[in-house]
Write a protein that binds this DNA or RNA. Structure first.
Length: 279
DNA sequence: ATTAATGTTCAGAA
DNA sequence: TTTCTGAACATTAA
């Protein structure tokens, strides 16, 4: 489930690879169907071996490793992917590894239980056009308070559904959308075009607050236990969830109304009927 | 045996 | 044109 806070935690956990030089890049033997690695592992390897890592960045829900050549190695964990520098949760779902020298970290691993994620090597130019251009919005931690509501425009979609749309803003996922709207007091089924400026500011502010706190807690590890940080340790923000996966519990704000679970765009949404309104 | 779960993308329908 | 729905990807736990 990695969303922005989890992916940011992964990024921070692997910062020590900066300065490292690639000794070997390999697709690790995985008995089941392999994940998408592009270009093919032999070509990818040829471009990376001997090259030095200049930075580790994050764009939305992706970890971006930048090399001296301008090439960028992008990890997109989707549902169950992890970027690790320690032993993975299981050996059979390890998908990709980079052997490194000249830095304290000797190996960078990509592990993915369900295998829906991917590893992609893009040239500088490809990165600019594919990930920075129109198709994707600006990162949630970068977008300004003025641009934020503008990007949602006058769409009539439910605000919670639009918040998950990565062409509007990058990084918000299903879990944090519910948490942000609860703090902002906005009903998840409010139409975007009916939200005034003041309420957009509330959503924006709480988005930044929730992400900052969730990053401090190193993300949320849900009951299935899949998400771990780069050292294969659980996150702690799941204990701070106000509404997510808390159907039937009393709302932490009003302490009266039970948390309601509804389905929007085939995804679960949690909210408080009393504290979250449409205007 | 069936269902649901965190993410993304696409085809096709309304 | 916009919005919505379902399916697909693969795995596992309830």
């Amino acid at each position: 489930m990695p969303e922005l806070p989890e992916v940011e935690t992964m990024r921070r956990g692997v910062l020590g690879i900066i300065g490292g030089k690639v000794v070997k890049a390999e697709r690790t033997p995985c008995p089941k169907k392999p994940i998408v690695i592009s270009p093919r592992i032999d070509r990818l390897s040829k471009r990376l071996v001997g090259k030095t890592i200049k930075s580790v960045d994050r764009l939305g829900k992706r970890v971006v490793v930048r090399f001296e050549t301008g090439d960028r190695l992008i990890f997109e964990p989707r549902m169950t992917g992890l970027v690790l520098i320690s032993d993975p949760p299981t050996t059979e779902h390890l998908r990709f590894s980079l052997k490194l020298k000249n830095c304290p970290i000797k190996k960078l691993l990509y592990w993915d239980r369900r295998g829906l994620g991917n590893v992609t090597l893009l040239t500088d130019k490809q990165y600019q056009t594919k990930l920075t251009d129109g198709k994707l919005g600006p990162d949630a931690l970068v977008v300004s308070e003025e641009e934020f509501p503008q990007r949602f425009g006058k769409t009539r979609r439910d605000v919670k559904v639009a918040m998950l749309d990565q062409s509007i803003v990058l990084g918000i996922g299903n879990l944090y959308a519910s948490e942000i709207l609860h703090l902002a007091g906005v009903h998840p089924q409010t139409r975007c075009d009916l939200i005034n400026k003041k309420r957009w500011s509330l959503i924006y502010k709480h988005m930044l607050d929730v992400f900052a706190l969730a990053i401090e807690y190193e993300g949320s590890t849900l009951s299935d236990g899949t998400y771990r940080n780069a050292l294969n340790k659980s996150g702690g923000y799941q204990n701070e969830h106000r509404v997510y996966d808390r159907e039937g519990e009393k709302c932490p704000s009003c302490k009266q109304s039970p948390i309601i679970r509804i389905v929007q765009a085939q995804r679960a949404t949690f909210y408080c009927k009393k504290c979250q309104t449409k205007r």
